[in-house]
Amino acid sequence: MLGKLKAGEKGRIMNISGADKFVRRRLLDLGIAEGSEVCVKCILPFGGPVMIESCGQCIGIRRKEALRIEVERA
């Protein structure tokens, strides 16, 4: 799960279908889908959002959603 990665860890997205429909759409807009490589840049405290990097751009999403995205550690 993407939400389980620690700051600095990398992974490849395996399954994104568990995430909310709109979140999925937005991530797709940004070019992030199954097969994309992602790297967790930082995690905000108190269950706050995570900042991830993929293809040279940074994106923030909520931890809750990140926990629904399956990744394979790289």
Binding site: D20, F22, R26, L30, P49, Q57, E65
Partner: peptide, 11 residues
Amino acid sequence: ETSLFVIELPP
């Protein structure tokens, strides 16, 4: 209504 948050962080 669920709330959603995806934000692009520009360089």
